[in-house]
């Protein structure tokens, strides 16, 4: 959201409205995601949560991250989830909840812990030297487009990290193929 022209510390009604709208939908979807018994329904609620997160990124002037969020999480990763559910035939066992009460209590406690931590962290003061001026991201996007401010550090400062990621993906592929292939060899033998 462009905050140019706005006095500091205030946000437009438009921004606030959308923040609460997507926040509410996101939180409700996430709750439905963890409480559904059917894996397919749960996965679809997760898609809805992912979309709301993408909207949040766009409200934060991170349009590129928002688009990637939709493409990668709501798109690719969720498709993989659904494939796994389909291949394992999990849709059949609807109504059976394998999660015990103890598990739910522990998960709830961890969730509350993270929530408390987020609240505590919003109270943290960052030294003024380390904070960017308000509206800086919007200004960058306006000047250079949404992708360039991410591409420039990625291919300069973090070039090494970018290249190492490719080796990491190669190792993951080799590992997956190795484990998959060997079982076949055993079945034949």
């Amino acid at each position: 959201m462009q905050t140019l022209g706005m006095p500091h510390g205030t946000l437009s009604l438009f921004y606030i409205f959308h923040f609460y709208l997507f926040g509410l939908i996101g939180v409700i979807s996430a709750l439905l995601f963890v409480t559904r018994k059917s894996p397919v329904a749960a996965a679809l609620w997760l898609v809805s949560t992912m979309f709301c997160l993408a909207a949040m990124y766009i409200l934060l002037d991170a349009q590129f991250i928002g688009a990637v969020q939709v493409l990668v999480y709501a798109g690719a990763i969720m498709v993989v989830f659904l494939f796994v559910i389909m291949l394992l035939n999990l849709g059949q066992g609807e109504g059976i909840d394998v999660r015990g009460v103890g598990w739910k209590i522990v998960a709830g406690a961890i969730g509350l812990g993270i929530l408390a931590q987020v609240f505590a962290l919003t109270r943290a003061k960052t030294p003024v030297n380390l904070t960017l001026p308000q509206g800086y991201a919007a200004e960058q996007v306006a000047q250079h487009g949404a992708v360039a401010p991410i591409a420039a550090p990625l291919f300069n400062e973090y070039l090494l990290a970018f290249e190492v990621t490719s080796i990491l993906l190669l190792a993951a592929i080799v590992g997956a193929v190795l484990l998959g292939k060997q079982k076949e060899a055993r079945d034949v033998a």
């Binding site: 030297n129 960058q140 420039a152 300069n156 400062e157």
Partner: peptide, 13 residues
């Protein structure tokens, strides 16, 4: 290292 326009990736200062 940067070959990009100097202000695309902000230095904090």
């Amino acid at each position: 290292i940067s070959t990009a326009p100097p202000d695309t990736a902000p230095r904090v200062a």
